[in-house]
Design a protein around this nucleic acid. Structure first.
Lengths: 220, 220
DNA sequence: GTCTAACTTGATTGAGCATTCAACTCAGCC
DNA sequence: GGCTGAGTTGAATGCTCAATCAAGTTAGAC
């Protein structure tokens, strides 16, 4: 019962922070949507910021069940999983008519000088996201050039998603999202082509373990 | 004299919106920093939002002189100009110790349901940015595959910049920016390699005007 | 049954906010 | 020299906000 109220409040705050941002969401807004009273809210959360922390923790701990599982479903191919994750965000953008995007990204840019605790939770959310993508990249194994830096590439996928969502929202047009993802796909295709060309030339991982001449793919 | 006050106000607002965001900047803040009185501000701007419009217009009209020229200076190579532009944003991030990023991007994500006039100015700023990058891509000509979509690639550069800045700010660490740019560089290098390979095989633009077999670079 | 502590209620507080306005200054002009 | 109007002043207005709190209710322990 008590927990019911608490989670109703967190859920309402989650929605509102996503829809209106943190600063523009008043405690009154949260109370109204969650049908709770201010005293109840302040019983569970010392202040507005603690509510934000709870929201970020909920995102963080729900990343598998609420994001990755729905996005991946039956998809097994690791590289397709990466693009399925992006497709999930596309859906989100479309569903909201390009009004809202990635809730974490929006909060990250809105909060200009966040409390360390908030900043760390934002970072933890990004980190969990990129780690999931990195696992896909590692799993793709020989299909991508051996010399690739999996972490760097995973971060680049997040970069693409966030930048693409930002443009779609600003232009109120999903095609901006699509075009960025299309470029990312082209990049992955080129990386795949590089990897298989290397393997054709007999320096792939299947054969002798000589070092590939490291393509341009990781040049600084 | 009058214009002096007006531009002092706009300049202060520019700084403050960048540092603290729009919602968190109060008119009082702007008055304090610009050393103006509220009556003066409201003489020039009907309301806070009109101040935002003025700020966005200033960014928009200053893109050449305040952004591109300083970033490019002596650099002539079109592809290096793209990365010089990114390097300029890196400087901005470093100078502010990873606290502030792209002022337009921050505003674009902060304002969840902006007035159409505001949204259009945000879009106009992004558009002017990508058009500048697109001009570089077009100028690079045969160094990139002929089949490439210059607009799409230009938007992808913006996507990368915005996503990279967001992560650097969240993690308070420029290396996130660097890694994303490094991936973008790898992509450009692979595109260049594709273009020169096509030209080696005699189907490049220099020779007969047969269609290149369109690489993966523009596949959807 | 009664005690306790977790939870709920909603009116209240005080700070900060965007905006207004009536009174003022002063340069330029006739 | 006095008129006009653009520009300035800062106190005042009315509102919304996050947070408080004293008085309640409820559920479970013993």
């Amino acid at each position: 019962m008590a927990d019911d109220t608490r989670s109703r409040i967190v859920f309402a705050a989650m929605e509102l922070f996503w829809e209106k941002g943190y600063a523009s969401t008043s405690i009154q807004d949260v109370l109204k949507r969650s049908a709770a009273n201010s005293g109840s809210l302040y019983h569970f959360f010392p202040g507005k910021q603690d509510l934000l922390l709870a929201v970020l923790q909920t995102y963080r701990s729900g990343i598998d069940e609420m994001l990755l599982r729905p996005a991946w479903g039956h998809i097994k191919d690791p590289i397709e999983r990466i693009f399925a994750l992006l497709a999930r965000y596309r859906e989100l953008v479309v569903q909201t008519e390009c009004f809202y995007g990635c809730p974490i990204g929006s909060l990250a840019l809105e909060l200009h000088e966040p409390d360390p605790a908030v900043r760390e939770l934002l970072a933890a959310n990004f980190l969990a996201w990129t780690e999931a993508v990195q696992r896909c990249i590692v799993e793709a194994g020989e299909r991508l050039p051996r010399a690739i830096n999996s972490r760097e590439l995973a971060e680049f996928v997040l970069t693409t998603m966030e930048g693409a969502v930002m443009q779609s929202r600003t232009f109120r047009d999903v095609s901006y999202f699509d075009r960025s993802v299309s470029q990312l796909r082209a990049y992955f295709d080129l990386l795949s082509a590089t990897a298989s060309a290397a393997s054709d030339r007999g320096i792939g991982p299947r054969k002798r373990r000589r070092r590939t001449r490291s393509t341009t793919a990781t040049r600084k």
